[in-house]
Amino acid sequence: MGSVTSKDIKKYPLETLCDHDKGINCMAASEDGSLLVTGSEDKTARLWDVSGPETECIGIMKGHTSYITCVAVHDTFIVTGAADSTLRKWDTISCDCLFTYRGHKGRISRVLCTGEYILSSSQDKTTKAWHVEEEILENLKGDADDIACIKTLEGHERAVYSLMVDPGEEDDTGTIGFGDLVVTGSLDCTARSWDFVSGNCLQVFKGHTGCVVAIVTDTNSRLLYTASADKTIRSWHIDTAVNFRVFEGHKSHITCLLALNKLLYSGDGDGVVRVWDVTGRDTVKMGRQQVVSVDSLTSFRPATNTINAIHLHNGMLFIVSSDNFARAVDAATREVLAVYTGHQIAVTCMAISGEHIYTGSTDTTLRVWNIPKRRTEGEESSSSSEEESEEGED
């Protein structure tokens, strides 16, 4: 393993922002990259202007009665989910709470916003869809739970963690979520697909022996990939739930999964990243379908503790880890380009905007860093979200 203190790659923060009183759990950037939202153990979310030369906190969102677990930014509003079982919608200009969504009976795990609706998964074994249009919310009367709920997706036997939406084609009927396919992953070791409009469960993806922690699809949305605490990844036909392949090799629980073109990247609790080739053709044949075991193309250990997120940006993997570091790694050569040094406790989340990477930590700080230049050109540019690690090889 190479030295993490090399002067060539050791990087220090441009800014360290200590506004939160407790650890930062999550963050999200606006689509145009001008705003950043952080959610914290201190029960608040903060809005940051990241469009100028210096990062500035321009608003504090207070109202949750327990720690914030997830955030999303869409257009002119922000959505937060918390351990108090509620979601809140906030205005990006005033940071006023526009609506409080009640109805879940357990901690919120994940929140997504499509523009048509908000989707949330929870420890209460359900996923709920909520109205987001201001005109609709203003006309809702009463204090009843689920008053803004469009539908509840029920079927999982334990907490629901991972969540994704495969959007359908637009229709002329104005039906909310027409053609949308929702996929959820649960502590019950299964994933499920749902028709949004009917709320019906279409398929149950069975095979894992541990919590399904991450779900992604291929570029055509025909193959579903599920990553699990059982140390494996599985590929499935998304319409039939036929299990084509099981990707084996991790020695610890998988924490994150990233799909890009013909490759999968996965990170685990030991700080290892594995890269998988997913170009093989999977077809459904008559009779019993044999599940094929697949080993990774390569693996490397950039971190010494759990990888909490991986992003791919401009041909570089950005990795954050519980070993207190963030790192930039050349995706093609696996050369460590930067070791971001400064956090005192685990780095939990990150976002990339413009020429900067933003990291949040259990140490309560938001830190800002320069994105390094790649030492070799090649590889196409792309971006996505997941975990980080340290340097060295398996």
Results as ranks from 00 to 15, higher is better:
26 C>A: 13
360 G>A: 03
168 G>A: 05
65 T>R: 10
386 E>D: 15
302 P>N: 05
252 S>A: 14
223 L>P: 04
332 A>P: 02
132 V>M: 08
299 S>E: 14
30 S>L: 06
65 T>P: 00
184 T>L: 04
182 V>T: 00
235 S>R: 12
388 E>Q: 09
2 G>K: 13
104 H>Y: 03
230 D>W: 05
156 H>P: 02
293 S>R: 06
296 S>A: 15
350 M>T: 08
89 K>R: 11
349 C>I: 02
286 M>S: 14
78 I>G: 02
54 E>T: 15
54 E>D: 15
42 D>L: 01
236 W>S: 02
149 C>T: 08
237 H>R: 11
171 D>A: 07
170 E>K: 06
337 L>H: 05
34 S>Y: 08
140 L>C: 09
351 A>P: 01
153 L>D: 04
108 I>K: 00
330 D>Y: 02
218 D>P: 06
352 I>L: 11
116 E>K: 04
70 C>A: 14
245 R>S: 14
79 V>P: 00
328 A>I: 02
171 D>N: 07
366 L>F: 06
207 G>V: 04
94 S>Q: 04
167 P>A: 03
251 K>Q: 14
369 W>N: 03
225 Y>I: 04
158 R>T: 07
248 E>Y: 06
319 I>K: 04
172 D>V: 10
343 H>W: 09
46 R>Y: 01
177 G>H: 01
184 T>W: 11
318 F>T: 02
78 I>L: 07
385 S>T: 11
359 T>L: 06
77 F>H: 13
275 V>W: 04
159 A>Y: 09
333 T>Q: 03
111 V>E: 01
183 V>L: 12
162 S>I: 01
147 I>C: 12
45 A>N: 14
109 S>T: 06
279 T>Q: 07
367 R>C: 03
186 S>I: 11
80 T>G: 00
12 Y>T: 10
